[in-house]
Amino acid sequence: MDADALRDHLAAEFGDALEPEVSFGLLTVTVEDGDYRRVAEFVRNDREVSCNFFDFLCGVDEEAAGIAVVLHVYSTSHHHHVQVRSVVPRDGGVLPSVHDLWAGADWHERETAELFGVAFDGHPHLAKLLLPEEFEGHPLRKEFALLAREAKPWPGAKEPGE
């Protein structure tokens, strides 16, 4: 199905619960964290959508609005992509885990948890994946400054864009 047909199909099922957006041929639905799990299950199990291939799950720092968690899946039978996006608060944001729907979500959720500080409810083992044990802080948040850039200005000719 192409992105517009998918959007209509999902809107028919969920109505106002999701805000769809089609950008460059890709459908992104933004949902509340309460509906996230329901939408993910539908996207996985519904026969018209049947997204069985797990692409990625990442976080995007949306500053004041919170941290957006983007789940991107693909269907090998219908050849379409769907992105499910949900914004959680910066402090204490929790989303249900989808590792039982797609096994690949296991590592992606661990990575998002350590880099952004989002907790995933129901995940078996939310330990640090990429960072060393002693690392403190959530590096991909915007307030995490790169110390090397603070300590010494970039000696090269121009800053990005100048």
Binding site: F54, D55, W102, A103, G104
Partner: peptide, 9 residues
């Protein structure tokens, strides 16, 4: 195949 797709392999 189904496990591979589920993992995103």
């Amino acid at each position: 195949a189904d496990v591979a797709c589920s993992y995103g392999s």
